[in-house]
Nucleic acid binder design. Structure first.
Lengths: 228, 228
DNA sequence: GACGATATTTAGGCACGGCGAATTTCAGAA
DNA sequence: TTCTGAAATTCGCCGTGCCTAAATATCGTC
Protein backbone atom coordinates (compact mmCIF):
# COMPACT_ATOMS: atom_id res chain seq x y z
CA UNK A 1 0.00 0.00 0.00
CA UNK A 2 1.55 3.25 -1.04
CA UNK A 3 0.33 6.78 -1.16
CA UNK A 4 -0.49 6.77 -4.86
CA UNK A 5 -3.21 4.23 -4.08
CA UNK A 6 -5.25 6.69 -2.06
CA UNK A 7 -6.77 10.06 -2.83
CA UNK A 8 -5.55 13.34 -1.44
CA UNK A 9 -8.77 13.58 0.54
CA UNK A 10 -7.93 10.27 2.20
CA UNK A 11 -4.43 11.53 2.93
CA UNK A 12 -5.96 14.55 4.64
CA UNK A 13 -8.19 12.33 6.76
CA UNK A 14 -5.20 10.25 7.84
CA UNK A 15 -3.28 13.37 8.82
CA UNK A 16 -6.20 14.65 10.86
CA UNK A 17 -6.66 11.32 12.62
CA UNK A 18 -2.97 11.13 13.40
CA UNK A 19 -3.09 14.52 15.02
CA UNK A 20 -6.27 13.80 16.98
CA UNK A 21 -4.91 10.53 18.34
CA UNK A 22 -1.65 11.99 19.60
CA UNK A 23 -3.03 11.99 23.12
CA UNK A 24 -3.59 8.26 22.96
CA UNK A 25 -7.36 8.63 22.74
CA UNK A 26 -9.23 7.35 19.69
CA UNK A 27 -10.36 10.18 17.41
CA UNK A 28 -14.07 11.03 17.69
CA UNK A 29 -15.93 11.34 14.41
CA UNK A 30 -17.14 14.81 15.28
CA UNK A 31 -13.59 16.02 15.89
CA UNK A 32 -12.49 14.80 12.48
CA UNK A 33 -15.51 16.47 10.91
CA UNK A 34 -14.74 19.76 12.59
CA UNK A 35 -11.07 19.61 11.63
CA UNK A 36 -11.79 18.97 7.98
CA UNK A 37 -14.87 21.16 7.83
CA UNK A 38 -17.17 18.45 6.53
CA UNK A 39 -20.31 16.86 7.96
CA UNK A 40 -20.17 13.95 10.37
CA UNK A 41 -22.01 11.88 7.80
CA UNK A 42 -19.20 12.42 5.32
CA UNK A 43 -16.67 11.35 7.90
CA UNK A 44 -18.53 8.15 8.72
CA UNK A 45 -18.57 7.32 5.03
CA UNK A 46 -14.88 7.99 4.59
CA UNK A 47 -13.95 6.04 7.71
CA UNK A 48 -15.70 3.05 6.26
CA UNK A 49 -13.60 3.32 3.13
CA UNK A 50 -10.38 3.81 5.09
CA UNK A 51 -11.21 0.84 7.30
CA UNK A 52 -11.80 -1.32 4.21
CA UNK A 53 -8.28 -0.38 3.08
CA UNK A 54 -7.00 -1.28 6.54
CA UNK A 55 -5.65 2.19 7.12
CA UNK A 56 -7.74 2.81 10.23
CA UNK A 57 -9.48 0.76 12.89
CA UNK A 58 -12.93 2.17 13.32
CA UNK A 59 -14.80 1.10 16.42
CA UNK A 60 -18.36 2.29 15.74
CA UNK A 61 -19.46 4.93 18.23
CA UNK A 62 -16.09 4.61 19.98
CA UNK A 63 -13.72 6.45 17.69
CA UNK A 64 -10.98 5.76 15.22
CA UNK A 65 -7.27 4.92 15.33
CA UNK A 66 -4.67 4.48 12.64
CA UNK A 67 -3.31 1.08 11.74
CA UNK A 68 0.42 0.68 11.29
CA UNK A 69 0.01 1.27 7.57
CA UNK A 70 -2.26 4.26 8.16
CA UNK A 71 0.22 5.77 10.54
CA UNK A 72 3.03 5.27 8.06
CA UNK A 73 1.10 7.07 5.35
CA UNK A 74 0.03 9.86 7.70
CA UNK A 75 3.60 10.44 8.81
CA UNK A 76 4.78 10.39 5.22
CA UNK A 77 2.45 13.26 4.41
CA UNK A 78 3.36 15.18 7.54
CA UNK A 79 7.01 14.69 6.75
CA UNK A 80 6.43 16.00 3.25
CA UNK A 81 4.48 18.93 4.57
CA UNK A 82 7.03 20.04 7.11
CA UNK A 83 10.02 19.47 4.86
CA UNK A 84 8.39 21.51 2.13
CA UNK A 85 7.59 24.28 4.60
CA UNK A 86 11.18 24.45 5.68
CA UNK A 87 12.49 24.20 2.16
CA UNK A 88 10.30 27.04 0.95
CA UNK A 89 11.34 29.21 3.87
CA UNK A 90 15.06 28.45 3.66
CA UNK A 91 15.69 28.08 -0.03
CA UNK A 92 13.14 30.47 -1.49
CA UNK A 93 12.51 32.93 1.31
CA UNK A 94 8.78 32.32 1.58
CA UNK A 95 7.56 34.02 4.79
CA UNK A 96 6.53 31.65 7.57
CA UNK A 97 2.89 32.70 7.46
CA UNK A 98 2.58 31.48 3.85
CA UNK A 99 4.50 28.24 3.77
CA UNK A 100 1.66 26.21 5.26
CA UNK A 101 -0.81 26.91 2.49
CA UNK A 102 1.70 26.16 -0.24
CA UNK A 103 2.86 22.96 1.46
CA UNK A 104 -0.71 21.79 1.82
CA UNK A 105 -0.91 21.44 -1.95
CA UNK A 106 2.64 20.36 -2.68
CA UNK A 107 2.78 17.61 -0.07
CA UNK A 108 0.50 15.39 -2.14
CA UNK A 109 2.49 15.51 -5.36
CA UNK A 110 6.21 15.36 -4.62
CA UNK A 111 8.08 12.14 -5.29
CA UNK A 112 10.07 10.29 -2.68
CA UNK A 113 13.17 11.18 -4.66
CA UNK A 114 12.41 14.86 -4.45
CA UNK A 115 11.67 14.53 -0.75
CA UNK A 116 15.09 13.02 -0.18
CA UNK A 117 16.80 15.71 -2.23
CA UNK A 118 15.10 18.48 -0.28
CA UNK A 119 15.98 16.85 3.02
CA UNK A 120 19.59 16.43 1.95
CA UNK A 121 19.77 20.02 0.74
CA UNK A 122 18.61 21.15 4.17
CA UNK A 123 20.98 18.83 6.03
CA UNK A 124 18.31 16.41 7.23
CA UNK A 125 16.59 18.90 9.50
CA UNK A 126 14.50 17.97 12.53
CA UNK A 127 12.10 20.90 12.81
CA UNK A 128 10.03 22.97 10.40
CA UNK A 129 9.78 26.80 10.35
CA UNK A 130 7.17 26.73 13.10
CA UNK A 131 9.23 24.41 15.26
CA UNK A 132 7.10 21.34 14.57
CA UNK A 133 9.14 18.14 14.44
CA UNK A 134 9.75 16.58 11.04
CA UNK A 135 9.07 12.84 11.29
CA UNK A 136 12.04 10.79 10.16
CA UNK A 137 11.71 8.29 7.37
CA UNK A 138 11.74 5.47 9.90
CA UNK A 139 8.74 7.00 11.67
CA UNK A 140 10.59 8.42 14.66
CA UNK A 141 9.59 11.93 15.66
CA UNK A 142 12.29 14.26 16.96
CA UNK A 143 11.51 15.65 20.39
CA UNK A 144 12.24 19.01 21.93
CA UNK A 145 13.12 18.39 25.59
CA UNK A 146 11.52 20.64 28.14
CA UNK A 147 9.02 22.05 25.71
CA UNK A 148 5.59 23.10 27.03
CA UNK A 149 2.99 25.72 26.20
CA UNK A 150 3.48 29.28 27.36
CA UNK A 151 0.36 28.80 29.49
CA UNK A 152 2.12 26.09 31.47
CA UNK A 153 5.41 27.93 31.83
CA UNK A 154 6.51 29.19 35.22
CA UNK A 155 7.10 32.92 35.68
CA UNK A 156 10.58 34.35 36.14
CA UNK A 157 12.63 31.74 34.30
CA UNK A 158 14.51 32.43 31.05
CA UNK A 159 12.72 30.76 28.18
CA UNK A 160 12.96 30.57 24.43
CA UNK A 161 10.25 29.97 21.84
CA UNK A 162 10.44 26.43 20.47
CA UNK A 163 7.23 26.09 18.51
CA UNK A 164 4.21 28.06 17.35
CA UNK A 165 0.93 27.10 15.77
CA UNK A 166 0.93 27.48 11.99
CA UNK A 167 -2.16 29.66 11.78
CA UNK A 168 -1.18 32.52 9.43
CA UNK A 169 -3.04 35.09 11.48
CA UNK A 170 -1.17 34.14 14.64
CA UNK A 171 2.11 34.14 12.76
CA UNK A 172 1.59 37.65 11.45
CA UNK A 173 0.57 38.78 14.91
CA UNK A 174 3.76 37.35 16.37
CA UNK A 175 5.82 38.91 13.57
CA UNK A 176 4.34 42.24 14.59
CA UNK A 177 5.61 41.73 18.14
CA UNK A 178 9.04 40.53 17.14
CA UNK A 179 8.39 36.99 18.30
CA UNK A 180 9.87 34.20 16.25
CA UNK A 181 11.37 30.76 16.75
CA UNK A 182 14.18 30.92 19.29
CA UNK A 183 13.17 34.33 20.61
CA UNK A 184 14.24 34.56 24.27
CA UNK A 185 11.53 35.68 26.66
CA UNK A 186 10.39 35.43 30.24
CA UNK A 187 6.94 35.25 31.79
CA UNK A 188 6.48 38.28 34.03
CA UNK A 189 2.97 37.82 35.34
CA UNK A 190 0.02 35.68 34.58
CA UNK A 191 -3.45 37.13 35.10
CA UNK A 192 -6.05 34.64 36.30
CA UNK A 193 -9.45 33.95 34.75
CA UNK A 194 -8.33 34.09 31.14
CA UNK A 195 -6.57 37.37 31.53
CA UNK A 196 -3.51 38.23 29.51
CA UNK A 197 -0.03 36.99 30.16
CA UNK A 198 2.77 39.50 30.39
CA UNK A 199 6.11 38.47 28.91
CA UNK A 200 9.42 40.29 28.77
CA UNK A 201 10.99 40.36 25.31
CA UNK A 202 14.48 41.77 25.31
CA UNK A 203 14.03 45.15 27.00
CA UNK A 204 10.31 45.49 26.20
CA UNK A 205 7.17 43.84 27.51
CA UNK A 206 4.21 42.41 25.71
CA UNK A 207 0.76 41.20 26.70
CA UNK A 208 -0.47 37.97 25.13
CA UNK A 209 -4.02 36.64 25.31
CA UNK A 210 -4.51 33.07 26.53
CA UNK A 211 -5.50 32.01 23.01
CA UNK A 212 -2.07 32.96 21.76
CA UNK A 213 -0.26 31.64 24.83
CA UNK A 214 -1.84 28.24 24.26
CA UNK A 215 -0.41 28.13 20.79
CA UNK A 216 3.17 28.99 21.67
CA UNK A 217 5.58 26.47 23.13
CA UNK A 218 8.70 27.33 25.06
CA UNK A 219 11.64 25.58 26.68
CA UNK A 220 14.22 26.70 29.25
CA UNK A 221 16.70 29.04 27.60
CA UNK A 222 19.76 27.49 29.23
CA UNK A 223 18.99 23.81 29.02
CA UNK A 224 20.47 22.00 32.01
CA UNK A 225 22.76 19.08 31.23
CA UNK A 226 21.25 15.86 32.44
CA UNK A 227 23.34 12.76 33.05
CA UNK A 228 22.18 9.91 30.85
CA UNK B 1 -10.78 33.54 -15.35
CA UNK B 2 -7.84 32.10 -13.55
CA UNK B 3 -6.32 28.68 -13.40
CA UNK B 4 -7.97 27.70 -10.14
CA UNK B 5 -11.30 27.80 -11.99
CA UNK B 6 -10.39 24.88 -14.24
CA UNK B 7 -9.38 21.30 -13.56
CA UNK B 8 -5.92 19.90 -14.15
CA UNK B 9 -7.35 17.82 -16.99
CA UNK B 10 -8.54 21.01 -18.66
CA UNK B 11 -5.12 22.53 -18.18
CA UNK B 12 -3.60 19.53 -19.90
CA UNK B 13 -5.99 19.90 -22.84
CA UNK B 14 -5.05 23.56 -23.20
CA UNK B 15 -1.34 22.70 -23.20
CA UNK B 16 -1.87 20.06 -25.87
CA UNK B 17 -3.91 22.40 -28.05
CA UNK B 18 -1.31 25.11 -27.71
CA UNK B 19 1.37 22.77 -28.90
CA UNK B 20 -0.69 21.41 -31.79
CA UNK B 21 -1.57 24.87 -33.05
CA UNK B 22 2.00 26.16 -33.10
CA UNK B 23 2.12 25.65 -36.86
CA UNK B 24 -0.85 27.98 -37.28
CA UNK B 25 -3.24 25.16 -38.16
CA UNK B 26 -6.25 24.46 -35.96
CA UNK B 27 -5.78 21.35 -33.83
CA UNK B 28 -7.67 18.27 -35.10
CA UNK B 29 -9.67 16.38 -32.51
CA UNK B 30 -7.88 13.15 -33.32
CA UNK B 31 -4.48 14.73 -32.71
CA UNK B 32 -5.57 15.93 -29.28
CA UNK B 33 -6.93 12.48 -28.50
CA UNK B 34 -3.70 10.81 -29.50
CA UNK B 35 -1.59 13.27 -27.52
CA UNK B 36 -3.60 12.81 -24.33
CA UNK B 37 -4.26 9.10 -24.85
CA UNK B 38 -8.04 9.37 -24.61
CA UNK B 39 -10.80 8.64 -27.10
CA UNK B 40 -11.95 11.17 -29.69
CA UNK B 41 -15.35 11.17 -28.00
CA UNK B 42 -13.76 12.32 -24.76
CA UNK B 43 -12.04 15.12 -26.59
CA UNK B 44 -15.23 16.29 -28.24
CA UNK B 45 -16.90 16.39 -24.85
CA UNK B 46 -14.09 18.33 -23.27
CA UNK B 47 -13.86 20.76 -26.18
CA UNK B 48 -17.48 21.60 -25.68
CA UNK B 49 -16.79 22.41 -22.03
CA UNK B 50 -13.70 24.45 -22.87
CA UNK B 51 -15.63 26.34 -25.55
CA UNK B 52 -18.39 27.13 -23.05
CA UNK B 53 -15.72 28.67 -20.82
CA UNK B 54 -14.44 30.61 -23.84
CA UNK B 55 -11.01 29.07 -23.59
CA UNK B 56 -11.09 27.60 -27.09
CA UNK B 57 -12.88 28.25 -30.35
CA UNK B 58 -14.15 24.95 -31.60
CA UNK B 59 -15.22 24.89 -35.25
CA UNK B 60 -17.02 21.54 -35.54
CA UNK B 61 -15.25 19.17 -37.91
CA UNK B 62 -12.67 21.89 -38.61
CA UNK B 63 -10.49 21.86 -35.53
CA UNK B 64 -9.83 23.90 -32.43
CA UNK B 65 -7.86 27.00 -31.53
CA UNK B 66 -7.18 28.73 -28.25
CA UNK B 67 -8.82 32.01 -27.37
CA UNK B 68 -6.69 34.75 -25.88
CA UNK B 69 -7.66 33.57 -22.41
CA UNK B 70 -7.01 29.94 -23.29
CA UNK B 71 -3.60 30.82 -24.64
CA UNK B 72 -2.79 32.75 -21.53
CA UNK B 73 -3.66 29.81 -19.32
CA UNK B 74 -1.81 27.34 -21.54
CA UNK B 75 1.33 29.46 -21.46
CA UNK B 76 1.03 29.84 -17.72
CA UNK B 77 1.14 26.08 -17.31
CA UNK B 78 3.98 25.68 -19.77
CA UNK B 79 5.88 28.41 -17.98
CA UNK B 80 5.33 26.63 -14.70
CA UNK B 81 6.39 23.34 -16.17
CA UNK B 82 9.63 24.57 -17.68
CA UNK B 83 10.58 26.74 -14.73
CA UNK B 84 10.04 23.82 -12.40
CA UNK B 85 12.12 21.56 -14.62
CA UNK B 86 14.97 24.03 -14.56
CA UNK B 87 14.63 24.65 -10.85
CA UNK B 88 14.72 20.97 -10.01
CA UNK B 89 17.76 20.45 -12.20
CA UNK B 90 19.68 23.50 -10.99
CA UNK B 91 18.74 23.75 -7.34
CA UNK B 92 18.23 20.12 -6.43
CA UNK B 93 20.31 18.25 -8.97
CA UNK B 94 17.48 16.19 -10.42
CA UNK B 95 18.78 14.53 -13.61
CA UNK B 96 17.32 15.88 -16.83
CA UNK B 97 15.55 12.65 -17.69
CA UNK B 98 13.45 12.86 -14.53
CA UNK B 99 12.48 16.51 -14.29
CA UNK B 100 9.64 16.24 -16.78
CA UNK B 101 7.64 13.72 -14.83
CA UNK B 102 8.00 15.64 -11.58
CA UNK B 103 7.11 18.94 -13.22
CA UNK B 104 4.02 17.42 -14.78
CA UNK B 105 2.53 17.07 -11.31
CA UNK B 106 3.96 20.18 -9.68
CA UNK B 107 2.97 22.59 -12.45
CA UNK B 108 -0.68 22.41 -11.43
CA UNK B 109 -0.23 23.28 -7.78
CA UNK B 110 2.40 25.98 -7.37
CA UNK B 111 1.28 29.50 -6.58
CA UNK B 112 2.14 32.51 -8.67
CA UNK B 113 4.21 33.73 -5.77
CA UNK B 114 6.28 30.56 -5.75
CA UNK B 115 6.64 30.75 -9.51
CA UNK B 116 8.10 34.23 -9.21
CA UNK B 117 10.45 33.18 -6.44
CA UNK B 118 11.78 30.26 -8.44
CA UNK B 119 12.25 32.45 -11.51
CA UNK B 120 14.08 35.07 -9.47
CA UNK B 121 16.26 32.44 -7.84
CA UNK B 122 17.28 31.25 -11.29
CA UNK B 123 17.86 34.76 -12.62
CA UNK B 124 14.77 34.87 -14.85
CA UNK B 125 15.99 32.16 -17.22
CA UNK B 126 14.86 31.80 -20.82
CA UNK B 127 15.32 28.08 -21.44
CA UNK B 128 14.60 24.88 -19.56
CA UNK B 129 17.03 21.94 -19.09
CA UNK B 130 16.05 20.55 -22.50
CA UNK B 131 16.52 23.89 -24.21
CA UNK B 132 12.80 24.58 -24.58
CA UNK B 133 11.94 28.28 -24.22
CA UNK B 134 10.28 29.40 -21.01
CA UNK B 135 7.37 31.69 -21.89
CA UNK B 136 7.65 35.05 -20.18
CA UNK B 137 4.89 36.31 -17.93
CA UNK B 138 3.77 38.69 -20.66
CA UNK B 139 3.31 35.77 -23.06
CA UNK B 140 6.41 36.34 -25.15
CA UNK B 141 8.42 33.24 -25.98
CA UNK B 142 12.20 33.53 -26.12
CA UNK B 143 13.62 32.42 -29.44
CA UNK B 144 16.86 30.66 -30.28
CA UNK B 145 18.14 32.14 -33.54
CA UNK B 146 19.39 29.74 -36.17
CA UNK B 147 17.92 26.71 -34.43
CA UNK B 148 16.79 23.78 -36.59
CA UNK B 149 16.58 20.03 -36.26
CA UNK B 150 19.67 17.94 -36.76
CA UNK B 151 17.94 16.42 -39.78
CA UNK B 152 17.86 19.80 -41.45
CA UNK B 153 21.40 20.79 -40.56
CA UNK B 154 24.03 21.03 -43.29
CA UNK B 155 27.12 18.81 -43.08
CA UNK B 156 30.54 20.22 -42.28
CA UNK B 157 29.55 23.26 -40.25
CA UNK B 158 30.30 23.64 -36.54
CA UNK B 159 27.06 23.27 -34.55
CA UNK B 160 25.97 23.12 -30.95
CA UNK B 161 22.97 21.39 -29.40
CA UNK B 162 20.27 23.90 -28.49
CA UNK B 163 17.29 21.71 -27.65
CA UNK B 164 16.28 18.10 -27.23
CA UNK B 165 12.96 16.37 -26.86
CA UNK B 166 12.07 15.63 -23.22
CA UNK B 167 11.43 11.92 -23.68
CA UNK B 168 13.32 10.23 -20.82
CA UNK B 169 14.46 7.36 -22.97
CA UNK B 170 16.00 9.71 -25.53
CA UNK B 171 17.64 11.72 -22.76
CA UNK B 172 19.27 8.68 -21.23
CA UNK B 173 20.43 7.58 -24.68
CA UNK B 174 22.02 10.97 -25.28
CA UNK B 175 23.60 10.91 -21.82
CA UNK B 176 25.21 7.63 -22.80
CA UNK B 177 26.80 9.28 -25.83
CA UNK B 178 27.94 12.37 -23.99
CA UNK B 179 25.44 14.62 -25.74
CA UNK B 180 23.90 17.41 -23.72
CA UNK B 181 22.69 20.97 -24.17
CA UNK B 182 25.45 23.08 -25.69
CA UNK B 183 27.51 20.10 -26.81
CA UNK B 184 29.50 21.09 -29.92
CA UNK B 185 29.18 18.73 -32.86
CA UNK B 186 29.36 18.59 -36.61
CA UNK B 187 27.43 16.55 -39.15
CA UNK B 188 29.88 14.34 -41.02
CA UNK B 189 27.62 12.44 -43.38
CA UNK B 190 23.98 11.87 -43.81
CA UNK B 191 22.83 8.50 -45.19
CA UNK B 192 19.76 8.69 -47.41
CA UNK B 193 16.53 6.69 -47.09
CA UNK B 194 16.25 6.91 -43.34
CA UNK B 195 19.78 5.77 -42.74
CA UNK B 196 21.79 7.00 -39.77
CA UNK B 197 23.46 10.34 -39.50
CA UNK B 198 27.11 10.46 -38.54
CA UNK B 199 28.19 13.31 -36.26
CA UNK B 200 31.60 14.24 -34.89
CA UNK B 201 31.63 14.83 -31.14
CA UNK B 202 34.93 16.18 -29.90
CA UNK B 203 37.42 13.67 -31.20
CA UNK B 204 34.96 10.78 -31.57
CA UNK B 205 32.13 9.99 -33.93
CA UNK B 206 28.63 8.76 -33.31
CA UNK B 207 25.78 7.42 -35.45
CA UNK B 208 22.30 8.71 -34.73
CA UNK B 209 19.09 7.27 -36.16
CA UNK B 210 16.71 9.65 -37.88
CA UNK B 211 14.23 9.32 -35.01
CA UNK B 212 16.79 10.82 -32.68
CA UNK B 213 18.02 13.38 -35.20
CA UNK B 214 14.47 14.69 -35.57
CA UNK B 215 14.29 15.33 -31.86
CA UNK B 216 17.54 17.23 -31.51
CA UNK B 217 17.86 20.88 -32.49
CA UNK B 218 21.13 22.63 -33.24
CA UNK B 219 22.38 26.08 -34.10
CA UNK B 220 25.64 27.35 -35.62
CA UNK B 221 28.41 27.12 -33.05
CA UNK B 222 29.92 30.51 -33.89
CA UNK B 223 26.86 32.59 -34.53
CA UNK B 224 27.57 35.16 -37.24
CA UNK B 225 26.80 38.74 -36.36
CA UNK B 226 23.97 40.05 -38.45
CA UNK B 227 23.36 43.75 -38.96
CA UNK B 228 19.94 44.71 -37.72
C1' DG C 1 -23.29 10.32 -55.07
C1' DA C 2 -21.01 6.96 -52.55
C1' DC C 3 -17.16 5.89 -49.64
C1' DG C 4 -13.82 6.19 -46.00
C1' DA C 5 -11.98 9.06 -42.67
C1' DT C 6 -12.97 12.09 -39.18
C1' DA C 7 -15.83 14.11 -35.77
C1' DT C 8 -19.89 14.49 -32.91
C1' DT C 9 -23.83 13.11 -30.30
C1' DT C 10 -26.07 9.98 -27.43
C1' DA C 11 -26.50 7.35 -23.57
C1' DG C 12 -24.43 5.61 -19.96
C1' DG C 13 -20.78 4.19 -16.43
C1' DC C 14 -17.96 4.86 -12.55
C1' DA C 15 -15.16 6.90 -8.86
C1' DC C 16 -15.26 10.30 -5.72
C1' DG C 17 -16.71 12.97 -2.00
C1' DG C 18 -20.12 15.46 -0.28
C1' DC C 19 -24.96 16.42 2.13
C1' DG C 20 -29.60 16.30 4.90
C1' DA C 21 -32.76 13.50 7.21
C1' DA C 22 -33.87 9.54 9.64
C1' DT C 23 -32.27 6.25 12.73
C1' DT C 24 -29.41 4.02 16.07
C1' DT C 25 -26.35 3.86 19.92
C1' DC C 26 -24.26 5.43 24.01
C1' DA C 27 -23.69 7.33 28.47
C1' DG C 28 -25.25 9.84 32.17
C1' DA C 29 -29.15 11.78 34.86
C1' DA C 30 -33.38 11.16 37.08
C1' DT D 1 -34.32 1.33 35.21
C1' DT D 2 -35.82 4.29 32.12
C1' DC D 3 -35.33 8.41 29.88
C1' DT D 4 -32.99 11.72 27.23
C1' DG D 5 -29.78 14.40 24.63
C1' DA D 6 -25.53 14.08 22.27
C1' DA D 7 -22.94 11.57 19.08
C1' DA D 8 -22.59 8.52 15.34
C1' DT D 9 -24.30 5.95 11.65
C1' DT D 10 -27.12 4.65 7.78
C1' DC D 11 -29.87 5.82 3.95
C1' DG D 12 -30.83 7.93 -0.16
C1' DC D 13 -29.30 11.18 -2.90
C1' DC D 14 -26.66 14.84 -5.52
C1' DG D 15 -23.09 16.88 -8.48
C1' DT D 16 -18.72 16.93 -10.67
C1' DG D 17 -15.59 15.13 -13.61
C1' DC D 18 -13.96 12.36 -16.96
C1' DC D 19 -14.30 8.62 -19.58
C1' DT D 20 -16.27 5.10 -23.17
C1' DA D 21 -18.74 2.47 -27.04
C1' DA D 22 -22.03 2.81 -30.41
C1' DA D 23 -24.79 5.40 -33.41
C1' DT D 24 -24.92 9.25 -36.25
C1' DA D 25 -23.34 13.11 -38.89
C1' DT D 26 -20.12 15.61 -41.82
C1' DC D 27 -16.35 16.32 -44.94
C1' DG D 28 -13.44 15.71 -48.83
C1' DT D 29 -12.51 12.94 -52.63
C1' DC D 30 -12.92 9.83 -56.30
Amino acid sequence: MDRSAISTAMQDYLKAIWDLTRSGEAAPTSAIAERLEVSAASVSGMLKRLAALELVVHEPYQGTRLTVTGRRLALEMIRHHRLIELYLAEALGVPWDRVHEEAERLEHVISEDLERRMAAHLGDPHFDPHGAPIPRMDGEIPSMPGSRTLIEAEAGAPLRVTQVDDDPELLRYLDGHGIGLGTPLEVVTREPFGGPLVVRLGRGECRLGPEAAHRIRVAPHEPQESES
